[in-house]
Design a protein around this nucleic acid. Structure first.
Lengths: 211, 211
DNA sequence: CCAAAAGTGTTCAGCATACACCCATGC
DNA sequence: GCATGGGTGTATGCTGAACACTTTTGG
């Protein structure tokens, strides 16, 4: 049977990051409640579907985005968080390059669009709270888990990763200490390849470990 | 309406600790599936009931225990974790004195009993995994949250807390460093009272901060 | 040989650990 | 006055932060 579970939902907080700007992906709802309002892309879980799979499927259905590294963040279970009936929601998040995906409003989404995170207005349900929670989770886990994996190519020089960290965390990080830290914590591993075609000294390429 | 949500459950991992022995509270199930097997006390959430309230109510109904400091640990959502139908479960845990409570097998529990954690056999569902998860969560959070609150009286001398930490973590902890740590991290606050009636020097009493 | 980015090592400070003695009371 | 548990301060090592110069390539 492929029914949905009526009391369990998934919400996805997908952050887009480019040129130091942090955006959040919202869809315009095509159904009640909160018809026509912008909200996080989410929905219900199928009976035979794991949470992780549901998160992935819903994101693809609603926005056209697929093949992401998504992380489970938390569960939101207040009795009044959803007006129509009791629904608890599991929150997932990811960090991506906005220009990398062609957005396609799918089933139950009239539109899909990136919004700047600062300046976000009140969203339906507890979605503002979810965005805050996901963002602080990301800033916290960035040193432990490969949450930047969607923002980097498979192989990259360490300085590219360094630039990303600094931009995302809004702070300058000493380059030597950065290298020592990500290597000693085994966030990355060095490959036996170097960049070519650059106009300067070639750099070793690294790869994120999925852990 | 006071129906249950059929696809969301709560499980409680209640650890009993006394004389250096760690026990886990199990009930003997009085219904299918897994009739007559020992498992964690858990059950379903009511439509209008918050997760925290549900955890508390179920624990009381099944075992007679009430008025505990319970913490949410994690969510278990695999499609095959429960045989009859799809159920995701939210895990709560607590640490108590086993002798403090009179165990009363209530609705849906034929018996309630403490079992030594080491030597626990295979339990139904993913309950072994839940016990492991809860235990490492506790050992991790013990320095940050008042998880020992159910094991201590409201006011206690620091050495009593020190003994508890050592026993629970199976390690000796320097007394001076212990005092410095729990005070600087604001886990406890000192009262203007001292023990009386002891046969030695009176000790200052402390209280856990709920944070 | 010059420009541009890559790569590397050492010093310093702050925090957690190790450790031993004096104190207050009851008997 | 002595036995019992209560209470405190200092020296040390380690980890994380600050900091500047040399290396390699392309043009």
């Amino acid at each position: 049977m492929n029914e949905i579970l009526p009391n369990i939902s998934i919400d996805n907080a997908i952050f887009g990051f480019a040129n130091g700007e942090l955006k959040i992906l919202l869809i315009k709802r095509d159904k009640q409640p909160e018809l026509d309002r912008w909200s996080l892309p989410g929905g219900y879980v199928y009976y035979n579907e794991n949470m992780d799979d549901a998160s992935r499927r819903l994101l693809h259905e609603l926005t056209g985005i697929s093949n992401l590294f998504l992380s489970r963040v938390d569960v939101f279970g207040d009795t009044d968080r959803y007006p129509d009936r009791r629904v608890i929601s599991v929150l997932y998040c990811a960090l991506v390059k906005p220009e990398q995906f062609e957005l396609l409003a799918g089933a139950h989404a009239k539109k899909v669009k990136w919004f700047e995170v600062k300046g976000i207005k009140k969203l339906p349900f507890d979605h503002n709270n979810m965005i805050d929670t996901a963002l602080s989770w990301l800033r916290d886990e960035i040193w432990r888990k490969p949450v930047l994996i969607n923002l980097l190519p498979e192989k990259f020089p360490l300085n590219q990763m360094h630039d990303l960290f600094q931009a995302f965390l809004h702070e300058t990080i000493d380059n030597r200490n950065f290298r020592k830290k990500v290597i000693s914590q085994e966030l990355v591993e060095r490959l036996n390849e170097k960049t070519t075609g650059g106009k300067q000294r070639p750099a070793y390429l690294y790869r994120l470990k999925r852990k």
